[in-house]
Design a protein around this nucleic acid. Structure first.
Lengths: 210, 210
DNA sequence: TGTAACTCGAACGCCTCTGTTCGACTTCTG
DNA sequence: CAGAAGTCGAACAGAGGCGTTCGAGTTACA
């Protein structure tokens, strides 16, 4: 009857710490495999969003069967990878104190850090779009997005950020500029240092109260 | 030996009017087929960028063999569709007098018109990215982009637009905001009227000289 | 009206990818 | 050390897509 494990993906899919047993004791080598797969998948998907499972398994130094033992479908794998990436980004961004200083300067600091992270995962987001659909990807993305939302809202209350446009639109502007900078750098039309300044300057101007 | 036509795609691929014979006399029904295929492909690709050839042929009311008679590969078809869309957009934008008024107001007018067109072809661009790659798509896109480039450059010379950032970056900003607005509308977080105002207001603020 | 151009459906060959099963082997862990 | 848990390659089954060929029928055009 074969001993395929796979009771459920390696957790990670659900973000909420709802009342789930969750531990799912696994053997050490299994945990090692899962970590290797997640890492390899992140790197591979990020290099080109259309990698097949064979490639990912090979990059992880693991047999295809083993991979399917832990992730029932490709979609589940991509979902786990995106969740993992978002979690890492979330942790990195936690180090930033967003309550210090004015909202615009806080945003600038946030942008400076976000930018690197976003740039590292840019292709991954394309893969996410392809394999999970826009809604699911958006759901993941929102776990990080909320910071921007909050800082902008604070700035609007304090009079540091324009209130003649919807908060959601200003958030969208923030991300649009971030993505644009990443694209420009990747296309070789801008270097990393210029990108940071350009984003900060443009963002400041765009969000300033009229 | 079958009488497949297909000497080359139905022109359109090459944009330059270099010294090519170009006419390629075709019979009336063939031209009708080509037009139907192009229309259907535009609509289909725009609805979902991963449509297969069968679907497109069916939507065009044409046999698959006929389609392959005019477009040797799927890539050639997508390329022709994108070229066609760009050409239409280009013609529509020709109606706008970009030399009248200040550069910022000219940009605002341009944005107001561009936005509808972009919104109609948004998914198509995803398909282009998938099937043609970023460079080829960019090459097409540049045929429209140059207007923005020129208006912004004019504004920078005249002192109406900030000069502390590279022109290319400001162009990127323009397009980023346009795309962001299209996405927000599509996601239902913004209605079309608000989108126009939001883009105009944000763009003006972002490009204004400090 | 005759002929060349065009269209059509059906079927084929080929390829790539996903996910599964099998049986044997290796590695944890108690 | 014994048994459970995990891993492996090979092979299979299924699905879907692309592009081609064939042969017969239809349509435009001179």
């Amino acid at each position: 009857m074969a001993s395929v494990t796979n009771r459920r993906g390696p957790a990670a899919t659900e973000s909420g710490a709802a009342g789930e047993p969750m531990p799912e004791r696994r053997r050490a080598d299994a945990r090692r495999s899962i970590a290797a797969i997640l890492d390899a998948a992140l790197a591979s998907l990020n290099r080109s969003p259309e990698v097949n499972i064979v490639e990912i398994a090979r990059a992880a130094g693991v047999g295809r069967v083993t991979l399917y033992g832990h992730f029932p479908t490709k979609e589940a794998l991509v979902d786990a990878v995106v969740a993992e990436a978002i979690t890492r980004a979330d942790r990195a961004l936690d180090a930033i104190d967003l309550d210090a200083g004015s909202a615009p300067t806080a945003l600038a600091r946030l942008a400076a850090s976000s930018w690197h992270i976003l740039n590292q995962h840019r292709q991954l987001m394309v893969a996410g779009q392809r394999h999970l659909g826009p809604q699911r990807l958006r759901a993941h993305h929102d776990r990080v997005m909320h910071r921007v939302q909050e800082v902008i809202a604070r700035g609007q209350e304090g009079g540091d950020i324009r209130t003649d446009l919807p908060t959601d639109w200003l958030v969208a502007t923030y991300y649009a500029l971030l993505h644009a900078a990443a694209d420009e750098v990747n296309a070789g039309r801008l270097d990393e240092r210029q990108a940071g300044e350009a984003v900060a300057a443009t963002m400041t101007a765009a969000l300033r109260p009229s």
